[in-house]
Write a protein that binds this DNA or RNA. Structure first.
Lengths: 347, 347
DNA sequence: CTACACAGTTCAATCGATTGAACCAATGCG
DNA sequence: CGCATTGGTTCAATCGATTGAACTGTGTAG
């Protein structure tokens, strides 16, 4: 920063005023072609660096966009990040980034700080347990009328734009696929904490069970963190049951990978001895051993759509908050198949 | 941004001047406890939001830190991101983030933009092929004397601080582990493009081969992208050779996972029929089927150390550029074992 | 020849926080 | 009682870019 050239430096050198330089550097047609080129030339040779603080102060907006995610260790979220980053780069917006670690205080602080920086918009995967108050309460009143798009997870009644996956549909696709293959003994390995995603997927699972006339007991539903370790540990527990499930429906690919790892140790062949499904269809799902049956969440579409919505709001577009639900796709690979020896009979 | 309260708003309300408010909000002892509290109270009730543009303009530094990575789809890099983010949050620094996608033009643009934003420091995983000129040439002269730390990949003669993994040692640990188990027919699956990491790991592999008196032929060394697909495809090619290798040393875990996927399809049992090693030891390595033998790169130590170095430079510390090399650790799991039926004999 | 348009440029105020210097009142000290 | 000290606050300049209004000179129409 130490004495970098400013508009004035250039102006003096070329023999015009700062106004002229300011306009010229932004290609304003009011400045003649000739002077404009001399000015731009001078800026180049002097190594001029635009000062966004000065501009932002005057204009009241820094042109940055803020993005707050929760779990970088989950490739599912980094896929979002990649898609949005690409779109914002295209729009020439810088990205302020935060990793909230499912911690409300970090999220709250980031919201304050991005406001301080004059960020023009925010994309947020709300931390588990986020309520309407957290996003719209007095302590963050600067979010009122602020361009904000929630992705992946929903928060009821926020009055903000949201782009989320159709979780109900995803579970339905998986369940029906397994049911059609003949499975009747299911287990649900839930993750995702206190999020709409966790709730919607589990609710959908329970609905399908009900609809199929299957009982949901304490042996059916299990909760834990979205981690490989949880999936791994749960398979052990499920195998220890008197009548283990023939199909394990996991909240996410990550958990399913953990289950596969435990299967391998036990010499169980997923897709033959037991069926396992993931959710998200992250890149690695095609390469697990065996390749994982999952549901593809369209992170690309969601990320792109969220970016578009945000850019539109930032451009001043006014309309009631939208809630866009993106349908996922069933991807059948090799971890699912008919139940082994009498899964049907034992029902 | 629209008419948010400013220092003036607060000053008028409390009946003091902006100076007093400015000082009070920063807990300057020059302002009496009583007024300070009244001011802070007023700021609170008015919903005051600090304007960093104004402050940054005056002070010439925004307190942000810039981070530029290359491959978000590789959990190895997102681990870095997580560790650094944590450290910077602690230091109350916001993070400007860029995903360079191994694209020099994106990297160059980000460097310019973060300078415009008055970022106080930069952590960079240089894109493949980055040279000294790219970082210190005339077009980016604002990097001279700028706090910059390179991580993971090295660039010769930069004059910047660097924190990197000891790649030579990592490969040595893996090779010696395999050699000691009896392997004599090796293959190298290289990735990483034109980076110091790619060069150092391959050089180390060749050195160990030489030291062991083993021939390196066109059947030994293979290059491709750091992807699951590359590992997968390469196993097919290797198996088609007249005398396939008994041990496959991969540039990274990602590639190794691809190899494991292909092994599974071929009914090959890694660790028994064939040995496979990764590099990085990302979280998933413990959960692949079977669990992957790898080398743990200490992303935590590297990330932390890089952040510390950067913060120290930002605080004005002056010393010649350092090059810190962090030793990795061998993690033996289940994809390695003695060569199957006569690997030794066939030599 | 005057008035007028217009392209090209300059003027000057402005954004909001920071900070060294100046100021003021009350207290302490000789 | 007068003078210095100091704690508390204000003054006023400053950071660098932006922008509506004002200005200048040239060309054109009447």
């Amino acid at each position: 920063m130490a004495n970098r050239p400013t508009l004035k430096t250039i102006a003096d050198r070329v023999g015009v005023t700062v106004s002229a330089v300011s306009l010229a550097l932004r290609d304003d047609p009011r400045i003649s072609r000739a002077t404009r080129e001399r000015i731009q030339q001078a800026a180049e040779t002097l190594g001029y660096v635009y000062n966004r603080h000065a501009a932002g102060l005057r204009r009241g907006d820094s042109g940055t966009v803020a993005v707050c995610l929760n779990d970088l260790s989950n490739p599912f979220f980094t896929e979002f990040l990649g898609h949005m980053e690409a779109r914002f780069r295209e729009a020439d917006r810088m990205m302020l980034f935060c990793h909230a670690h499912e911690t409300p205080s970090i999220q709250a602080r980031f919201i304050r700080q991005m406001a301080e920086h004059g960020a023009a918009g925010l994309i947020l995967v709300p931390v588990a347990g986020t309520t309407r108050e957290d996003l719209d309460g007095p302590q963050v009143r600067h979010l009122r009328d602020f361009p904000l798009v929630l992705i992946s997870r929903d928060v009821d009644d926020t009055g903000f734009d949201r782009v989320i996956n159709d979780d109900e549909m995803g579970i339905r696709l998986l369940f029906d696929h397994l049911y059609a293959a003949g499975h009747r003994r299911f287990a649900w390995l839930g993750g995702g904490g206190d999020t709409s995603t966790a709730r919607d997927r589990e609710r959908s699972f329970r609905q399908r069970m009900d609809a199929a006339g299957l009982p949901v007991t304490t042996e059916t539903i299990h909760h834990g963190p979205t981690s490989l370790a949880f999936g791994d540990a749960m398979l052990e527990r499920l195998l220890a049951l008197p009548t283990p499930p023939t199909a394990i429906v996991c909240f996410s690919d990550i958990i399913a990978f953990g289950v596969l790892a435990a299967c391998y140790r036990h010499g169980l062949r997923p897709g033959i001895d037991i069926s396992v499904t993931g959710f998200d269809d992250m890149g690695a799902a095609a390469y697990s051993a065996p390749a994982l049956t999952s549901v593809r969440v369209r992170t690309d579409l969601i990320g792109q759509r969220a970016s578009e919505l945000l850019l539109a709001r930032m451009a001043g577009e006014r309309h009631p908050p939208v809630r866009e639900v993106v349908p996922p796709e069933l991807v059948v690979r090799n971890t699912t198949g008919p139940p082994a020896h009498g899964g049907l009979v034992q029902r």
